[in-house]
């Protein structure tokens, strides 16, 4: 038995190097398109295998100011619009998703498994939900309300799953009962003890559902009709109507935004991990 793990065996000699190599190759494979896109957004042209004509801010200028061929609006307004819509979607998910995750993790009740299934399965792809929305609420498509509701519905599973795993990692019943025996009412227990204890999951769920909602294309493409386009539509217009380098700058703006949001939420999460008196 032991001979398999002796120093002379293949896995003991090369196992670690092999795993490192596979990991590195996977990371490079995943990161390369992002890095290449970001780098090329500062290039003057891309003919052949690699971009050239560095460094220019022309592409960024086109995108930010809105003078690009494909854009009839600046990225700033689209970005702010999508960020706002996604934020509203996240707020709805927080208000609805956190209590659902709590109920499923904490209580045994009739239909619990079904609630769980409906909450964590993205039941309808964006395109189907979009068509259904258009047919059911045709008047809503001109406002952002349909987009907000759609984003929150489509991204709710990510919020519920992240928060639920936080709840499941703690002894929910005993924590709740301790707080109540100390004189806290149920709402107070929920808001001052339960929710703060699940902060890691709530922050993770918010980051995931916000970034996915801010970039949701299928639903936006079906439901959006006029006005400021959501970011995904804006990017699509850039990609289809403008040069790739123009689109690269537009995509890079979104990459930066995701990085910014993730880092700032993590800083907030770490700083407030334990409430000092």
């Amino acid at each position: 038995m032991g001979s398999r793990f002796e120093s002379g065996s293949l896995s003991a000699r090369y196992g670690r190097q092999f795993v490192t190599l596979v990991l590195a190759a996977t990371l490079v494979f995943l990161a390369l398109p992002v890095v290449l896109t970001f780098v090329s957004s500062f290039a003057g042209e891309w003919v052949g295998a690699l971009p050239s004509g560095f460094v220019t801010l022309e592409n960024w200028n086109d995108v930010i100011v809105g003078t690009g061929v494909g854009a009839d609006a600046s990225v700033g307004s689209s970005l702010a619009y999508s960020a706002g819509l996604a934020l509203a979607g996240v707020l709805i998910n927080l208000i609805v998703g956190v209590p659902i995750a709590y109920a499923v993790a904490r209580y045994e009740f009739w239909g619990r498994d079904w609630v769980n299934v409906f909450a964590i399965l993205p039941l309808a792809p964006g395109i189907i939900l979009g068509i259904a929305f258009l047919r059911t609420y045709p008047d809503l498509s001109t406002s952002g309300i349909a987009l907000v509701i759609g984003y929150s519905l489509l991204k709710a599973p990510y919020m519920v799953m992240a928060v639920q795993s936080s709840f499941q990692s703690m002894d929910l019943q005993q924590i709740e009962e301790s707080a109540r025996s100390l004189g806290a009412s149920w709402p107070r227990t929920f808001l001052t003890v339960i929710v703060p204890n699940a902060k890691a999951g709530i922050i993770a769920g918010s980051i995931i559902s916000w970034t996915l909602a801010a970039a949701e294309f299928n639903f936006s493409y079906i439901v959006y009709s006029r006005g400021t386009p959501p970011l995904s539509i804006f990017l699509f217009n850039n990609i289809t109507n403008a040069s790739f380098l123009n689109a690269a700058a537009a995509v890079s703006v979104f990459f930066l935004l995701i990085a910014l949001v993730t880092i700032s939420l993590q800083i907030v999460g770490n700083r407030g991990a334990v409430r000092r008196l």
Partner: peptide, 9 residues
């Protein structure tokens, strides 16, 4: 399980 509130000191 102690059930301490980890969000507080």
């Amino acid at each position: 399980s102690y059930a301490l509130f980890n969000n507080m000191t």
